[in-house]
Amino acid sequence: MDIIYLLLALSVLVALVFFFAFIFSVKKGQYDDVYTPSVRMLFDDEIVKPKPNKKESTTKEKSN
């Protein structure tokens, strides 16, 4: 039973170390993206094609 308490304490300690390392790296700007904003305007936008209306398709069929 003592080993469970030891492993629990060690896991909490490791989790806290990783948490503080993450906070430290965020504050230092490790995750700031400086590349994507400069090339975003070079990416093409997706072209959205409008769906045909049912009224237009039925009137075209009737006239033929």
Rank of each mutant, 00 (worst) to 15 (best):
T59M: 09
L10E: 04
K54L: 09
E61R: 12
K27N: 15
N64I: 02
L8M: 12
F24N: 14
I4V: 12
E46G: 02
K54M: 04
D2K: 07
F18P: 00
N53F: 05
V34Y: 03
Y31M: 07
L10F: 08
M1D: 08
V14L: 09
S38I: 07
L6V: 07
L10W: 02
T59L: 11
S25A: 15
K51E: 11
S63D: 10
D44T: 02
L42E: 14
F22T: 11
K62M: 11
L10C: 09
S25P: 00
I3P: 00
I47V: 13
L6A: 14
I3H: 03
I4L: 08
K49E: 10
E56M: 08
Y31I: 08
M41N: 13
L13A: 15
D2G: 10
K55P: 00
S57Q: 13
V39I: 15
L10Q: 04
M1A: 14
F24C: 07
E61S: 08
E56I: 03
I3M: 06
S57M: 11
F19S: 13
L6Y: 05
D44W: 03
G29M: 03
K55T: 08
A15G: 13
A15C: 09
K49V: 06
K54P: 00
K28A: 14
V12H: 01
D32T: 15
L10S: 13
Y35A: 15
I47W: 03
L16I: 10
E46W: 07
K51F: 07
T58M: 05
P37A: 10
Q30S: 14
Y35V: 15
S38L: 14
K28R: 15
D33L: 06
V48P: 00
F20L: 14
K55V: 08
K55C: 02
K60H: 10
S11T: 04
P50Q: 02
V48R: 02
V14H: 03
A21H: 04
L7Y: 08
K49W: 04
D2V: 05
K51V: 07
N53K: 15
D2R: 08
Y31F: 15
A15S: 14
T58H: 03
V14K: 01
D44V: 01
V39N: 02
A9K: 03
